[in-house]
């Protein structure tokens, strides 16, 4: 009887430790930070291209190509570990706007990611070919961003 109690207590402690580490090591927060950083880099590079497209920044073929290549690289990055189960707007309210539908309708979100990758690769090819080519490409990348945000991001 005593042995059973000790075994049970041990199991309970083990479970507690395991549970605590899963909750407290902050790996979900770290993943959210990392993917937010990726989003910031998207908007940083898109900002340069969008400024040129809008005419607030003078068009420069070399700079446009560099920013577009960055976007293409960002969209082609492996997303491993960035979107762990449980890092959604319900489970982590206030920390992320990533809707649970990302996980419940998977792989729908992966299709959106593939569409962005394609649009960004095309933009990288044409961004240095003049302002009109740039404008069209930026619009398509924006549509790909918006398409995913529409379905999978909670309003502010």
């Amino acid at each position: 009887m005593r042995k059973v109690s000790i075994a049970l207590a041990g199991a309970a402690i083990a479970a507690m430790v395991a549970g605590t580490s899963a909750l407290a090591d902050g790996h979900l927060e770290k993943a959210i930070d990392a993917r937010n950083a990726q989003m910031t880099l998207y908007s940083w590079n898109l900002g340069m291209l969008g400024g040129m497209a809008k005419g607030t920044v003078e068009y420069d073929a070399a700079k446009a190509s560099a920013a577009a290549s960055n976007l293409a690289a960002l969209s082609a990055m492996s997303s491993q570990g960035l979107w762990p189960e449980g890092s959604d707007s319900t489970a982590m309210a206030g920390k992320t706007r990533a809707l649970p539908e990302i996980w419940s309708t998977y792989p729908a979100v992966a299709e959106k990611g593939a569409a962005l990758k394609e649009a960004a690769a095309k933009l990288a090819q044409v961004a240095g070919n003049g302002l009109d080519a740039l404008k069209g490409g930026v619009g398509d990348v924006g549509k790909a961003c918006g398409d995913c945000h529409k379905q999978f991001r909670m309003p502010k």
Binding site: S43, L46, G47, K150, R153
Partner: peptide, 16 residues
């Protein structure tokens, strides 16, 4: 275009 000044995009029902 759906772009905010810092180049985020419209999401949710605002995308529609």
């Amino acid at each position: 275009s759906g772009f905010t000044p810092d180049f985020d995009t419209a999401g949710g029902s605002m995308a529609d």
